[in-house]
Design a binder for these strands. Structure first.
Lengths: 236, 236
DNA sequence: CAGTGGTCTAGACCACACA
DNA sequence: GTGTGGTCTAGACCACTGC
């Protein structure tokens, strides 16, 4: 039963940690060149593939910079990366323990406004569905959603009435794996947004915008407004 | 010379794309079980390691869910992930083509306030440096930075005066690879923030908060306020 | 307990980028 | 040219976990 304590194999996690700690203790300073994979695999007593995976992941994480022939260096200006999870509103609310409530505010079919044509490349001849709805956490307004959906991209959307299912959830089930651009900003509540979020006009709101395409085909653009209390926290 | 045109090997990128397209065209619906790695490697005519890397990365990206013995499934509720780059302010401003200007507003040594002890686990007996400074893009206020630094974690900070280098840049060079928690929110400008950002009190500001530790040791907490015009856009 | 993914190896060839 | 990382392979053993 008692295993040989020294029998541990060197895994890529150990290699990663070792490299990181050498950077932390300044063995390898910013911008400095690391030994090649072959050399390191000898030092660590493992296969080159193991070192390769370790260094590849560290490069992915923004710690190292790798170039063929040039070698691997510690990144100079550690551009920080933060990763955020953007869950479905209902799940987000329910995860907090509160009851989720949804209400459709408006649903209309229009020709795409100019800004939408410019923003997403929607064809001016196409029609779009404009939906506004509210998401509540218990009895408190949680999010006001203002969304545009390209009918040409998702014809079935004309049959969806969004009275009981939010457009986001409907789309998630209908359009798998679309590509998205997301941005965050702060803004003053417009009269309309203030009314739905139960704020005064001009009070700060947190705004998330999301535009999605499926292979260059514009699907939807959404602007989601949250009251001041909302906080977006990095995962990982 | 002329290579056999059909000699293309199946790489992990091709495997990834193929899997993704099969999900897009509903060959594999949400929650559905995919064939095992061995089976897929036969279908694709490549080694299992290649399929493994493809599926591992897709799992990393949130497209697939993998469990030993249970197999690999298409993710049910595609929790969207967004990745953001948090650059050094100076670089961010200079990248926009504007001239960067920096000004120290305040620098003082204090005992850590209660909220900071609670937030970061700073020892109440330790001392902290409190720094406030402004970052300008051309002549426009770009960011107001309010930062606390744990002297016990970075003793050299007592010698830094921050009159010409911003605390962020100083720290980046002094403390490599610290772990950070980042959050974003919207807030009303306090009198102080409004004064520095040249806004009216109560106007919306975009707030980024960052807390960093080095191996459980609290290093610094910073609250950065941006005027309404600021927009954080997802990379990747 | 048995099947699936997780990882490691040893070796090989390739593609790029610098000299 | 030539060295470095990028990737693939075929095979092996392991660890977790659902049955």
């Amino acid at each position: 039963m008692s295993e040989n304590a020294s029998a541990e194999r060197t895994g890529f996690r150990e290699v990663k940690e070792d490299i990181v700690s050498r950077i932390k203790n300044r063995t390898w300073g910013p911008g400095e060149l690391l030994p090649g994979e072959v050399e390191l695999s000898r030092q660590f007593g493992c296969a080159r593939a193991t070192v390769n995976r370790a260094m590849r992941e560290l490069a992915e994480e923004g710690v190292l910079e790798r170039k063929r022939k040039a070698g691997t260096r510690v990144v100079q200006n550690p551009v920080r990366h933060a990763r955020f999870e953007i869950p479905i509103v209902r799940h987000e609310v329910e995860a907090s323990g509160a009851e989720y409530r949804y209400a459709l505010v408006k649903r209309e079919v229009l020709t795409p406004p100019d800004w939408l044509q410019a923003r997403m490349g929607v064809n001016s001849a196409d029609r779009v569905i404009h939906v506004q709805c509210m998401h509540y956490s218990g009895n408190s307004p949680y999010q006001f959603e203002d969304r545009w959906i390209n009918i040409a991209a998702v014809p079935k959307v004309e049959q969806a009435d969004f009275t009981s299912t939010s457009p986001n959830e409907w789309l998630v089930n209908e359009v798998p794996l679309s590509k998205a651009e997301i941005s965050f900003s702060a803004s003053s509540a417009s009269d309309e947004v203030a009314r739905f979020l139960e704020l005064k006009s001009g009070e700060p709101v947190f705004v998330a915008e999301r535009a999605t395409w499926l292979e260059e085909l514009p699907i939807t653009y959404a602007r989601m407004s949250f009251p001041e209390s909302y906080r977006l926290v990095s995962s990982l």
